[in-house]
Amino acid sequence: MNRLISIFYWFSLGAVLCFITLPLIVVVAASLSPTSAVTLQPWEWTGRWYADLWSSRWLDPFLASVKIATVVAAISGVLGLFAAYAVVYERIPGSDALMSCLLSPLSVPQIVKGVAVVLFLSMIGLQGFLGTPALIAAHVVLALPFVTRMVATSLANFDANLDRAAQVLGASKLQRIRLVVLPMIKPGVLSGVTFAFIISFNNIPLSVFLVRPGDSTLPITVINYLEYSLDPVLAAVNVASMAFILAVIFLFEKIGGFSAQLHGGSK
């Protein structure tokens, strides 16, 4: 009986891991196969879908996405850092209520936020704002609560005695912030910024309302195309953008090392 249970346990574990990895493997295989269907017929490898990526059709939305995600990561990083500093470190009056305000967008589904922003801009006659500016604004609203929460967590968790020690030793407030607090919370800030970059880069539910023809992000370009065809070039686009995301994470990990922070960023 016990044997049966443990066989069942290992089997189900393996099955779930297969379930998780199967679509990823299939996409990589599709990106290298000459036809769109992943079939059991013998097929040879081809790199031509990756070669096709080097055209303005895919490069333009990719660069647009990178640009938007970079601006969003920078803005929400700075704003989140300042907000968390005011609320957690300085404990300004009403800090709990202010923190709830800062985190309140988290409880609204993205698609609802997206509708609200597009209706708002249309109502006040700012349709011209759609495209990159609206995407940046909406993505900042999306990313800012996450960044604020990550920075707030690291501000709340670092050893406050170090700060007190610096104070006793005569450091000014500015010196303490620059030499003690900022280095201590650097991993939290960097993981927040990385997270902001990724959620902006991969975002669909907000972007879908805010893009304009000719001013679109990579995921939206891909899903619009995907509704009509399963062209293998899409598999290549997806694999390439995943490789790009991994490179970004690797880069930030090299700069700041936030593996220990991943739990704070997992929601």
């Binding site: 891991l17 998780i20 679509p23 996409v27 991969n202 669909i204």
Partner: peptide
């Protein structure tokens, strides 16, 4: 393995399932 798909983005995974579940 359990968390890596999260980085791949929704489009890639949905595309994978489209290929897997399609009629052909």
């Amino acid at each position: 393995l359990a968390l890596a798909p999260e980085l791949a983005g929704v489009v890639l995974r949905t595309y994978g399932w489209l290929i897997i579940l399609e009629d052909r």
